[in-house]
Design a protein around this nucleic acid. Structure first.
Lengths: 140, 140
DNA sequence: CTACATCCTCTAGCGACTAGAGGTGCAAGA
DNA sequence: TCTTGCACCTCTAGTCGCTAGAGGATGTAG
């Protein structure tokens, strides 16, 4: 039942102080009890929740997805199909993003390799940007 | 010398109408001449520039980087070292992003595979998020 | 008792747009 | 000629997930 200040909660969870207050403001984290001097007093459960949120954010889940995951976590007898669906959707996003970034990488490499370090009018970087037709990948 | 409306410019360049106006507002694109009825009248050079911008945005260059690249393009006798540096920096960013996304992908795959499609209290998705110690990669 | 760090609330800003309100211009059909 | 209806105009405000700063209160160590 030990109470924790917001600063300590920030240090322990890895979520910055203003971000914790922001999460409270948008209703992602319940408003904690307050000390006599009106300062937030957190408990272990809040810390667990903050850690959960931070981890999910690091995995790139959006706030709304985290909101859904937290609701699921609160009701452990529910089916985890929703959690699975959210994670799978995120996985698909990530895979898509990797594919498109890999294509970009190839294109940037060609640009950089083609640059003869001369003057701008012979620069492949500028040239490729100006004329899409020279792209390696036309998908974008 | 054929004048082009903003809608036509949007269709030809692939940049949306409000975005074109936005680019003008932030000084990325010069304000074009106007028709008698105060409507924007673009020329071919504006279209080329818009295409350049769109292409650079698709490659993930930030507005400020594009601003720099456009300045270089305007002065073709300059050394292209700056353009090269901008493209290389972007390449490094992209490579970094791919690495981190690949790590995320592995983690998400483990979460999704571990999900037995049962109840939430046995769900690996929720479990992993709650306890960082179970992560495949601790770097994040 | 006095520093000084930490806390509080509130507002505004970031990047790169996007959406909407409320009004004007223009081309084509009746 | 009139009217319909789309495209255009400006302006403000909203998006997402924070972050920064002002201006003031509280808590703690020396």
């Amino acid at each position: 039942m030990k109470k924790i200040t917001i600063g300590e909660a920030a240090r322990k969870s890895g979520v910055k102080v203003p971000t914790i207050r922001y999460y409270e403001g948008i209703g992602l984290l319940a408003a904690p009890s307050r000390s006599e001097g009106n300062q937030r007093a957190y408990e272990q459960t809040d810390l667990d929740r903050l850690t959960f949120i931070r981890h999910a954010r690091e995995l790139g889940f959006e706030i709304d997805a985290i909101r859904a995951l937290l609701t699921l976590q609160d009701d452990p007898h529910q089916s985890c199909a929703s959690a699975d669906a959210i994670a799978k959707a995120r996985l698909v996003e990530v895979e898509q993003r990797i594919r498109s970034l890999t294509a970009l990488k190839a294109e940037l490499e060609m640009m950089v390799e083609g640059c003869g370090h001369g003057r701008v009018d012979q620069c492949r970087v500028i040239e490729v940007l100006a004329d899409h037709g020279q792209c390696a990948h036309h998908g974008h």
